[in-house]
């Protein structure tokens, strides 16, 4: 069953007379519970695609349907509700709140999410049960990224959107984080969408999408994706 559907979606940025078409009439359908990797060079439109799916931005044309709901025409407040209930974000630079401890950073989603999961459980799932009272600045990069994954999962979202989640990590930590994300798809049935430059990550994906010049170059399902351990990092 398709959890995400993009129909004829374009996103145009205007800067005075200059017009930049970040996405150009994109059509896409993605299935629930899959590990999806979006590849493409810089400026291809990967992040724009992710922003539209996450409700951080709205398309100039076309419709974006997530879980049967058209999010392309939502108001800023409705988009906030959508982000609170349906999607989790993981960024390259973690974006944790420096003045909140690990557990507080995760628990803060309880303020907004309609069906939050236990913060403790999520931190346990990402292997940080022993660090819950530390501040982000007291953790390593990989640990911080895991906190951000725990925070994203604590909202109990349908989809987890990850923008270069391993970009700031060393390869060993990156592999661990990817393994964690993969298990979220396999064990918890979450739809994971990862935007990356790293071709290797695509080997783990159920679906690989390549974006080029604002268009989908291809969208390919892989019957036998590799496990983290099988990929040659």
């Amino acid at each position: 069953m398709a959890i995400v559907e993009l129909k004829d979606v374009s996103r145009v940025y205007r800067n005075g007379e200059h017009e930049q078409r970040a996405l150009d009439h994109v059509n896409l359908s993605l299935e629930e519970g899959k590990f999806i990797v979006v590849l493409g060079p810089s400026g291809a439109g990967k992040s724009t695609l992710l922003n539209l799916l996450g409700g951080l931005d709205s398309p100039t044309e076309g419709t974006v349907t997530v879980n049967g709901r058209d999010i392309s025409t939502l108001t800023p407040n409705e988009l906030a509700e959508y982000r609170a209930a349906s999607v989790g974000f993981v960024f390259q630079s973690y974006n944790l709140i420096p003045t909140l401890t690990v557990i507080e950073n995760v628990a803060l989603v309880k303020e907004i999410a309609p069906n939050p999961l236990s913060s403790h459980d999520m931190l346990k799932a990402v292997g940080l049960a022993d660090h819950i009272h530390q501040f982000p600045s007291e953790l390593s990069g990989g640990e911080q990224q895991r906190v951000s994954i725990a925070r994203a999962l604590a909202k109990n979202p349908h989809i987890l959107l990850c923008d270069e989640p391993t970009g700031a990590l060393d390869s060993q930590t990156g592999v661990m984080v990817l393994g964690l994300l993969l298990s979220m798809a396999r064990d918890m049935g979450k739809t994971i969408i990862i935007v990356t430059h790293n071709q290797n990550i695509a080997k783990m994906a159920d679906t690989v999408i390549r974006v080029k010049n604002g268009r989908i170059e291809y969208c390919r399902n892989q019957e036998h994706p590799l496990s983290v351990e099988e990929v040659d990092w």
Binding site: N77, A80, Y82, R83, N95, T99, V109, A113
Partner: peptide, 16 residues
Amino acid sequence: YREMATLKVVGFKDSK
């Protein structure tokens, strides 16, 4: 700014 942007992405409304 960055912290507020994070809250916004997480799903906090402007009013909150």
